[in-house]
């Protein structure tokens, strides 16, 4: 079974892309935050259709806030965001958002395949029950993340890496044009990280736009195409190897950067103890 069997027609997809003139996400002058504290100020950013972008930066730098604004989960205080040339929400059914693992209730009585079927819910609409097409899409997505044999497990019985893969499968099953992923590789083993990144790279290669926040600078540098350094504002937006630029790191992380004898630097920010039981604080 091929993944294209669950896609809408190619025409519709290229239409959305064309309408946007190759720009998947356009952010102009966005300021947003919680309470009276701005997490991001005056952010201007354009993400091209088919790009694979990592957003990195210190805790409290606004990574999750930015992702939530693009997903329409937070209203910016000022500025505007367009997704595929339309206001946020217009193409909501073609946007898949994966929350941080900490934001999910893992004791919820629900099985792996039921979670993945949620990816099909928005396009089904009320009253309509899932058809064989939807069940095939779910099986296909589970196959792609190597979890078909765990389909009937309750989600609380999964390991950290498996939990991330379930949510990635849910996003794949929705067949979105835009992936918004909050910490998709945090707390996962290297093999799972490799698997997740291969899938995301494949999605970008077929014209889907992928945006992910991450603490993992090595992953950002090696596996993503573009990066955005975010420290309350956009420090830089460019090719992935910018992550390894000392000036960029210094400006992004400020005092968390410690110079080493011999000219290197070491970053004393959460990423180094972000694995395992780390809680997101944004």
């Amino acid at each position: 079974m091929s993944s294209t069997s669950v896609s809408p027609s190619v025409n519709e997809d290229s239409l959305a892309a064309e309408r946007a003139g190759g720009q998947a996400v356009t952010i102009s002058g966005v300021t947003a935050g919680y309470g009276d504290r701005a997490a991001i100020s005056n952010v201007n950013l354009t993400l091209q259709t088919g790009s694979l972008t990592a957003i990195f930066g210190p805790n409290g730098g606004g990574k999750s806030t930015l992702i939530k604004c693009i997903a329409g989960l937070m209203q910016p205080w000022s500025g505007s965001i367009n997704v595929f040339g339309a206001p946020v929400g217009e193409y909501a059914k073609r946007v898949a958002y994966v929350p941080q693992a900490e934001q999910v209730d893992w004791s919820f009585p629900i099985s792996v395949d039921e979670v993945v079927m949620m990816g099909r819910t928005p396009s089904l609409g009320p009253l309509r029950r899932p058809s064989s097409v939807d069940r095939d899409a779910v099986a296909d997505a589970l196959q792609r993340v190597d979890m078909l044999d765990l389909a009937r497990r309750q989600i609380g019985e999964l390991s950290g890496g498996q939990r991330r893969r379930v949510f990635l499968a849910r996003a794949l099953a929705a067949d979105p044009l835009l992936y918004l992923l909050d910490e998709p590789v945090t707390g996962v083993d290297p093999t799972t990280q490799e698997k997740i990144m291969n899938l995301l790279e494949g999605e970008a290669a077929r014209g889907r736009t992928v945006v992910a926040t991450t603490h993992d600078l090595a992953c950002a540098a090696q596996r993503f195409h573009d990066v955005v350094a975010l420290a309350g504002r956009v420090v830089v937006h460019g090719k992935a190897d910018l992550v390894l630029d000392r000036a960029v790191l210094e400006e992004t992380y400020g005092g968390h950067l410690v110079p080493l004898p011999g000219g290197g630097v070491v970053l004393l920010d959460d990423p180094h103890h972000a694995h395992g039981s780390h809680e997101g604080h944004e």
């Binding site: 939530k68 997903a71 329409g72 989960l73 929400g89 909501a92 059914k93 946007v95 898949a96 958002y97 994966v98 929350p99 934001q103 999910v104 209730d105 919820f108 629900i110 039921e114 979670v115 949620m118 990816g119 819910t121 928005p122 949510f167 849910r170 929705a174 918004l180």
Partner: peptide, 15 residues
């Protein structure tokens, strides 16, 4: 079910 389990994911998907 979707909105109860994952309000953020459901909201982003347009529910």
């Amino acid at each position: 079910l979707f909105a109860t389990f994952d309000p953020l994911g459901a909201g982003a998907a347009g529910l």
